[in-house]
Measured scan of single mutants.
Amino acid sequence: TEELDSELELPAGWEKIEDPVYGIYYVDHINRKTQYENPVLEAKRKKQLE
């Protein structure tokens, strides 16, 4: 659920942004990119696909 997503600790260099226009998204300051999917959940999903 969304509530559990926010409890996950983000990897180093990541920041969660709550924007009133664009909603919640994540900033990867190391690689200078943004995405809507939580990077922790993304990594778990990719691992399940292997």
Results as ranks from 00 to 15, higher is better:
residue 30 I to P: 08
residue 8 L to Y: 11
residue 10 L to P: 04
residue 16 K to A: 03
residue 13 G to P: 04
residue 22 Y to V: 12
residue 46 K to G: 11
residue 39 P to T: 01
residue 32 R to Q: 15
residue 28 D to W: 00
residue 11 P to R: 03
residue 48 Q to V: 10
residue 48 Q to F: 05
residue 16 K to N: 00
residue 40 V to D: 08
residue 45 R to E: 15
residue 49 L to S: 13
residue 4 L to S: 13
residue 41 L to T: 12
residue 1 T to K: 03
residue 48 Q to D: 14
residue 26 Y to S: 05
residue 11 P to Q: 04
residue 16 K to I: 10
residue 31 N to D: 06
residue 10 L to I: 10
residue 26 Y to M: 02
residue 23 G to I: 01
residue 23 G to F: 00
residue 16 K to Y: 00
residue 25 Y to A: 06
residue 44 K to D: 11
residue 39 P to F: 00
residue 27 V to L: 12
residue 43 A to H: 09
residue 24 I to V: 12
residue 45 R to N: 05
residue 8 L to N: 02
residue 47 K to Y: 08
residue 12 A to W: 11
residue 25 Y to Q: 10
residue 24 I to M: 14
residue 47 K to H: 09
residue 15 E to S: 08
residue 42 E to D: 08
residue 15 E to L: 02
residue 19 D to I: 01
residue 34 T to D: 04
residue 17 I to H: 07
residue 6 S to T: 15
residue 6 S to P: 05
residue 6 S to G: 12
residue 44 K to G: 12
residue 33 K to T: 09
residue 10 L to D: 01
residue 41 L to A: 14
residue 8 L to K: 15
residue 13 G to C: 05
residue 33 K to D: 12
residue 22 Y to W: 09
residue 22 Y to A: 12
residue 40 V to E: 07
residue 19 D to E: 01
residue 44 K to H: 08
residue 49 L to G: 11
residue 12 A to Y: 04
residue 41 L to G: 11
residue 6 S to Q: 12
residue 40 V to K: 12
residue 21 V to C: 13
residue 4 L to D: 01
residue 9 E to F: 03
residue 24 I to E: 15
residue 37 E to I: 04
residue 9 E to T: 11
residue 15 E to W: 00
residue 30 I to H: 12
residue 32 R to G: 13
residue 37 E to Q: 09
residue 41 L to P: 10
residue 9 E to L: 08
residue 2 E to T: 15
residue 10 L to N: 02
residue 21 V to Q: 13
residue 38 N to L: 06
residue 39 P to V: 01
residue 26 Y to E: 08
residue 16 K to T: 03
residue 43 A to M: 12
residue 34 T to L: 02
residue 17 I to Q: 00
residue 15 E to R: 04
residue 27 V to T: 07
residue 28 D to R: 00
residue 29 H to F: 01
residue 1 T to Y: 09
residue 32 R to L: 10
residue 38 N to F: 12
residue 24 I to H: 01
residue 7 E to R: 13
residue 2 E to A: 09
residue 18 E to I: 08
residue 46 K to V: 12
residue 35 Q to R: 05
residue 4 L to R: 15
residue 32 R to E: 14
residue 15 E to F: 01
residue 15 E to T: 06
residue 46 K to D: 14
residue 44 K to A: 11
residue 28 D to T: 00
residue 27 V to N: 05
residue 16 K to Q: 08
residue 48 Q to M: 14
residue 43 A to V: 10
residue 9 E to Y: 02
residue 17 I to T: 07
residue 33 K to L: 13
residue 44 K to T: 08
residue 6 S to M: 09
residue 22 Y to S: 13
residue 32 R to W: 03
residue 24 I to T: 14
residue 17 I to G: 02
residue 7 E to P: 08
residue 6 S to E: 09
residue 48 Q to L: 06
residue 28 D to E: 01
residue 23 G to N: 00
residue 2 E to H: 02
residue 28 D to V: 00
residue 47 K to T: 11
residue 48 Q to W: 07
residue 28 D to P: 00
residue 2 E to P: 06
residue 6 S to H: 08
residue 17 I to N: 02
residue 34 T to W: 08
residue 40 V to L: 13
residue 25 Y to S: 10
residue 48 Q to G: 08
residue 16 K to C: 07
residue 23 G to D: 00
residue 40 V to G: 12
residue 49 L to Q: 15
residue 44 K to M: 12
residue 20 P to M: 06
residue 12 A to S: 13
residue 9 E to H: 11
residue 19 D to P: 00
residue 22 Y to P: 07
residue 35 Q to G: 03
residue 5 D to N: 15
residue 2 E to N: 15
residue 5 D to Y: 14
residue 9 E to C: 10
residue 22 Y to E: 13
residue 35 Q to A: 07
residue 37 E to C: 06
residue 27 V to D: 15
residue 19 D to C: 13
residue 23 G to V: 00
residue 43 A to N: 13
residue 38 N to V: 09
residue 16 K to H: 00
residue 34 T to K: 08
residue 13 G to K: 05
residue 1 T to G: 10
residue 25 Y to D: 05
residue 18 E to A: 13
residue 10 L to E: 01
residue 47 K to W: 04
residue 8 L to W: 10
residue 11 P to V: 01
residue 27 V to P: 04
residue 11 P to Y: 03
residue 35 Q to K: 03
residue 42 E to Q: 08
residue 16 K to S: 03
residue 30 I to W: 04
residue 34 T to I: 03
residue 40 V to Y: 07
residue 13 G to H: 02
residue 49 L to F: 05
residue 42 E to S: 08
residue 13 G to N: 13
residue 45 R to I: 02
residue 26 Y to H: 04
residue 50 E to I: 06
residue 2 E to M: 07
residue 38 N to W: 10
residue 7 E to C: 15
residue 28 D to L: 00
residue 2 E to G: 11
residue 17 I to P: 00
residue 46 K to T: 05
residue 38 N to T: 05
residue 24 I to F: 14
residue 42 E to P: 05
residue 12 A to H: 15
residue 32 R to P: 02
residue 38 N to R: 11
residue 33 K to I: 06
residue 23 G to K: 01
residue 36 Y to P: 09
residue 26 Y to C: 01
residue 3 E to A: 04
residue 29 H to A: 08
residue 5 D to V: 14
residue 4 L to E: 07
residue 6 S to C: 03
residue 29 H to D: 02
residue 25 Y to C: 07
residue 24 I to C: 08
residue 5 D to A: 14
residue 16 K to L: 03
residue 36 Y to Q: 10
residue 34 T to V: 07
residue 19 D to M: 00
residue 1 T to W: 05
residue 42 E to G: 10
residue 20 P to L: 01
residue 50 E to H: 01
residue 44 K to L: 12
residue 7 E to T: 14
residue 21 V to M: 03
residue 21 V to W: 07
residue 50 E to Q: 03
residue 19 D to F: 01
residue 22 Y to Q: 09
residue 36 Y to D: 06
residue 50 E to R: 00
residue 28 D to M: 00
residue 37 E to A: 09
residue 32 R to K: 12
residue 11 P to N: 01
residue 19 D to S: 09
residue 16 K to E: 05
residue 14 W to T: 07
residue 23 G to W: 01
residue 49 L to A: 13
residue 37 E to M: 06
residue 45 R to Q: 13
residue 1 T to E: 15
residue 18 E to D: 10
residue 26 Y to N: 02
residue 22 Y to N: 08
residue 19 D to R: 00
residue 3 E to P: 01
residue 29 H to E: 05
residue 6 S to V: 15
residue 13 G to S: 05
residue 38 N to E: 07
residue 30 I to F: 08
residue 35 Q to C: 05
residue 10 L to R: 02
residue 18 E to C: 10
residue 17 I to D: 01
residue 50 E to S: 06
residue 31 N to L: 05
residue 44 K to S: 11
residue 14 W to C: 05
residue 34 T to R: 13
residue 15 E to Y: 03
residue 35 Q to I: 02
residue 1 T to P: 01
residue 30 I to T: 07
residue 6 S to N: 09
residue 32 R to N: 10
residue 14 W to K: 03
residue 13 G to E: 04
residue 30 I to V: 12
residue 32 R to H: 15
residue 1 T to N: 14
residue 30 I to Q: 08
residue 16 K to W: 00
residue 31 N to R: 08
residue 24 I to D: 04
residue 46 K to S: 11
residue 42 E to K: 03
residue 12 A to F: 15
residue 10 L to F: 05
residue 15 E to P: 00
residue 50 E to W: 15
residue 21 V to G: 06
residue 33 K to P: 00
residue 33 K to N: 09
residue 44 K to P: 06
residue 26 Y to R: 02
residue 22 Y to H: 15
residue 20 P to W: 05
residue 19 D to N: 02
residue 45 R to H: 02
residue 34 T to S: 11
residue 2 E to D: 06
residue 29 H to Y: 05
residue 35 Q to P: 01
residue 13 G to F: 04
residue 17 I to Y: 12
residue 31 N to H: 12
residue 24 I to S: 10
residue 36 Y to G: 08
residue 18 E to S: 05
residue 47 K to E: 07
